[in-house]
C-alpha cells in the first residue's frame, strides 16, 4: 500500500518558489506564502513552526491539494498534488469524527471510500484501534469519548489507508498537557516502529514539541522559510531528556527569534 516515489525522484515533498495569494472577490489581497521553497526526504519527520497566520496550514493544504499555488510548483512523490490521494493522509487540529458513526466506523471511513471489502475493513480498523489503545471503544460514538480518545480515533482513521505521507496540523493542540503527552507518544511509537517510515509534515506552535518529535524543524516567517534546523538527538526521546540537552536552549532560541 506504500506509494513509491516516481523513479529518479528523491523528494517526498518538493515546493519550488511557491506563492499563494488570497483575496479574490474584492477583498484586500494578501500573500500568505511568497516564493517559498522546501524539500522533504522520504521518511523524514519535519516540524513546521511559525507565528500564527504565517502560512503553515496553507502549506499543508497545498500539499494536500486543497489549495492551488498562485505561482511555483508543488510535487508530492513526483506527482502534482490532488485532493484525496491515497498516499497522502491529513490529520486536522480537531478530530473531525463523523458524530453518527462509531469509532470503528469512523476508522473505516477512508477504507470505505476506497471500496475495500467489509471484512478487511473491520480487521484493519480493529487492529489500528488496538494500536492506539482503544479496543474498548470500538462501538462507542464520538459523543461518548473524551477529547484525547477522539483524537486517537482520528489518528487511527488517518493511518487506516496507510498513506506514505502524513500531514498533521497542530494535532494535539486541543488536548490538555497530560493527554497531549500520552497521545503524542502513542503516535511516535507507531511512526518509529515501521520499517518504511512515513514522511510527516508536522505543524505546531509549540517549539518544545517541535524539537521533541522532529528530525528537522523548519520555521516559516514572511511567507518563506526562515530557518531549517536539523535536530541532532537520537530516538526514542522524551520531554525531560530533550529539555535537558545541552544544545536545547540554543536551538530553542534560534527558532523563537524567527517567530518575532
Amino acid at each position: 500500500m506504500d506509494a513509491k516515489p516516481a523513479p529518479g525522484c528523491e523528494h517526498a515533498v518538493a515546493l519550488r518558489s511557491v506563492t499563494v495569494d488570497f483575496g479574490a472577490n474584492g477583498r484586500v489581497p494578501r500573500s500568505v506564502l511568497t516564493g517559498l521553497s522546501l524539500d522533504v526526504e522520504p521518511g523524514q519527520l519535519v516540524a513546521l513552526v511559525g507565528a500564527s497566520g504565517c502560512g503553515k496550514t496553507t502549506l499543508l493544504n497545498l500539499v494536500a491539494g486543497l489549495v492551488r499555488p498562485s505561482t511555483g510548483e508543488v510535487a508530492v512523490f513526483g506527482q502534482p498534488p490532488r485532493v484525496g490521494r491515497q498516499d497522502v493522509g491529513y490529520l486536522f487540529a480537531r478530530d473531525g469524527l463523523l458524530p453518527w458513526r462509531t469509532a470503528r466506523q469512523n476508522v473505516e471511513l477512508g477504507l470505505e471510500m476506497r471500496g475495500q471489502a467489509r471484512h478487511a475493513r473491520r480487521d484493519t480498523a480493529a487492529s489500528l484501534l488496538d494500536r492506539v489503545d482503544l479496543s474498548s471503544a470500538l462501538d462507542l460514538y464520538p459523543a461518548e469519548l473524551s477529547q484525547g480518545m477522539r483524537q486517537r480515533v482520528a489518528l487511527a482513521r488517518t493511518l487506516a489507508t496507510d498513506p506514505a505521507l502524513l500531514l498533521m496540523d497542530e494535532p494535539f493542540a486541543a488536548l490538555d498537557a497530560q493527554t497531549r503527552a500520552s497521545v503524542r507518544s502513542v503516535f511516535l511509537d507507531i511512526w518509529d516502529d515501521e520499517l518504511d517510515r512515513k514522511t510527516v509534515l508536522f505543524v505546531t506552535h509549540d517549539l518544545a514539541e517541535a524539537l521533541l518529535v522532529a528530525d528537522r524543524v523548519v520555521s516559516i516567517a514572511g511567507g518563506r522559510v526562515r530557518s531549517d534546523v536539523p535536530v541532532p538527538w537520537s530516538r526514542p526521546r522524551d520531554e525531560r531528556s530533550v529539555v535537558g540537552q545541552r544544545d536545547f536552549p540554543a536551538l530553542y532560541d534560534t527558532l523563537h527569534a524567527d517567530l518575532g
Binding site: 494536500a64 491529513y90 480537531r94 463523523l98 471511513l109 470505505e112 471510500m113 482513521r157
Partner: peptide, 19 residues
C-alpha cells in the same frame, strides 16, 4: 471539518452525498 476529512479521504461526489 467533516467535509475536509471526507475530501482528503478521497470521497467522490456521490460518496459525499450518501456518507
Amino acid at each position: 471539518e467533516h467535509r475536509r476529512v471526507c475530501l482528503t479521504l478521497g470521497a467522490s461526489k456521490a460518496q459525499m452525498f450518501w456518507k
